[in-house]
């Protein structure tokens, strides 16, 4: 419903050489790490000048998700939502990030607003962003161990006991 009527119905299967899919009417471009910065830069030139959101998903328990042909599923995905204010359209980029080498180039120089978002992704998922101006934790205490939103990180709930409850 938040999609724009301007969106191209016959969205091409590729855009700048990267596979493009349609997710419930929303345009999603799938990127690898090697072309991440380059495509992001091109998208800015195309009008997607505002980065509204940058987050990540840990697909540890869900590696068999559907991805377009040619995209190798990795454990982590960084999801970037871009907005074109002029033409009122959105595009979402899903970037595969491997577990063993969880590093992505930072978007800071392109979208300074991603500074806090990338720190949050680092804090919650342990994905580092190279050339980030301030690569530190943001939400958890500085001496915290682990990255809470990873799927192999426990929720950390303690069992609730109702004292005096009939057993």
């Amino acid at each position: 419903m938040t999609d724009t009527p301007h969106e191209d119905e016959s969205a091409p299967a590729t855009m700048h050489g990267c596979p493009v899919t349609d997710s419930r009417g929303q345009v999603v471009i799938h990127l690898g790490r090697d072309r991440y910065l380059e495509v992001m830069r091109v998208l800015v030139d195309e009008g997607f000048a505002m980065c509204v959101d940058l987050t990540a998903v840990d697909y540890l328990d869900y590696m068999d998700r559907s991805l377009p042909a040619g995209v190798e599923p990795e454990r982590f995905e960084v999801v970037v939502n871009l907005l074109d204010i002029g033409q009122r359209r959105r595009i979402r980029a899903r970037v595969q990030v491997s577990e063993t080498d969880a590093v992505l180039p930072s978007l800071f120089d392109l979208h300074p607003g991603t500074e806090a978002m990338e720190r949050e992704v680092f804090d919650m998922f342990g994905i580092s962003f190279s050339d980030h101006p301030d690569p530190s934790r943001i939400l958890m205490p500085e001496d915290w161990i682990g990255h809470p939103l990873r799927k192999d990180y426990e929720v950390g709930s303690i069992p609730v006991q109702f004292k005096g409850a009939p057993t």
Partner: peptide, 8 residues
């Protein structure tokens, strides 16, 4: 919020 972040 019975989770890692909140003091119970």
């Amino acid at each position: 919020f019975n989770n890692y972040a909140i003091v119970q």
